[in-house]
């Protein structure tokens, strides 16, 4: 009697173990399918662009060529580089994105720290205004912003001295410097929000210990708080850089013919068309250009435009993901 009972118990155990194993396995399978599927959807456009960029013109009309080019070529890249001064555009974009990134980081860290730790009467009200700036669509203040930079003047001071109605800053890079230096750039309210949440999460004891040791407020901020805020800094820097890189709204608003990556991507089709037209000896008409070929070239340029970002991302990604997890992005 006894051994039989024992046997059935192990059988029950085994079947329970089997069901658990099966559900676990099934879930793993479903998860794998989902992850691979979604990754494919995300990577698909990039893979497509790479495939297009290396194709030869004649592959476009070859039905047997879908993904892997038959005539592997770098002609597309060469041609795009002829139309566009890529190194110059790249340098401009990197300098602009990097510059605004650093300025925004400084001003937003200061403002975020003030909102979190250096409270004064009315600072909560001011923070509500920060949230308000996030929520207002930038288009609402588009026309006045343009007018502002067209006749730039700080509360009428410049007019007082020179007698002219301000300085024309349209077409220069000053609007970027001014707006990011005064923490009013692209989505800057969000950065202040991130910094504030992060600094709020740093225990009060650390701050107080610094004061006890005789550090002033500025020293505490620079030597104690900022080194602790690296995750928030990395997050803000990446967002600031990338959003400036991809922005067309502000750069087309204040620059006349921006030599920036995002603007180039938006207008490249026309430029390539006219280049090809002059190449072929047609002066006025661009109608004879093959639209597929044109599209192939603009795809190549898009690839070139996002390439630096992707490279940067794959180096910074690990650090970035970890940082965001430790940031006070969490309400």
């Amino acid at each position: 009697m006894e051994p039989m009972q024992q046997k059935s118990v192990t059988a029950v155990n085994r079947s329970a173990w089997l069901t658990r194993f099966m559900t676990g396995f099934l879930w793993k399978l479903v998860r794998l399918v989902l992850l691979v599927g979604i990754s494919y959807v995300i990577l698909y456009p990039i893979i497509l662009k790479i495939s297009i960029a290396f194709k030869d013109k004649q592959d476009l009309y070859n039905k047997t060529v879908v993904w892997i080019p038959k005539n592997f070529t770098l002609d597309n890249f060469k041609l795009v580089l002829q139309v566009i001064d890529y190194p110059k555009v790249l340098l401009n974009t990197v300098l602009l994105s990097g510059g605004t990134m650093i300025l925004q980081m400084i001003t937003c860290a200061l403002a975020g720290y003030a909102f979190a730790k250096l409270k004064f009467k009315g600072s909560n009200l001011l923070f509500i205004l920060v949230v308000f700036t996030i929520l207002v669509p930038p288009q609402t203040i588009m026309v006045p912003t343009y007018a502002l930079y067209k006749n730039f003047d700080i509360f009428g001071i410049i007019e007082l001295f020179t007698g002219k109605p301000g300085i024309n800053l349209i077409g220069t890079y000053w609007p970027f410097i001014i707006s990011s230096g005064l923490a009013m750039g692209l989505k800057t309210g969000l950065f202040i929000y991130i910094f504030r949440q992060f600094f709020r999460g740093i225990p009060k004891e650390i701050e107080e210990a610094a004061y006890m040791d005789g550090a002033g407020i500025l020293t505490t901020f620079l030597r104690v708080m900022l080194p602790n805020a690296v995750p928030a800094i990395v997050t803000v820097m990446l967002f600031a850089f990338v959003w400036q890189w991809n922005d067309t709204y502000f750069s087309t608003l204040v620059l006349i013919n921006p030599d920036l990556m995002s603007a180039k991507v938006a207008t490249v089709a026309g430029q390539i068309a006219s280049y090809l037209a002059t190449e072929a000896g047609m002066v006025t008409s661009t109608g004879n250009i093959d639209p597929f070929y044109l599209s192939m070239l603009s795809n190549t340029l898009i690839l070139l435009a996002i390439l630096p970002l992707v490279v940067m991302y794959f180096f910074a990604q690990r650090y970035f993901v970890e940082s965001v997890e430790r940031t006070g992005l969490v309400g």
Binding site: T107, C108, L110, A111, Y113, A114, F115, K117, L118, K119, F120, K121, S123, L126, L129, V130, T133, V136, T140, I141, V143, P144, T145, A147, L148, I154, F155, I178, S179, G181, L182, A183, M184, I192, I217, L218, F221
Partner: peptide, 26 residues
Amino acid sequence: KGRMGILFLAPWLIGFILLFALPIGE
């Protein structure tokens, strides 16, 4: 601390008035 706070906020505050509050009124 409060005074430092105002100082830290100064760039943002100027920016807010000059680049946001005035344009939005406009």
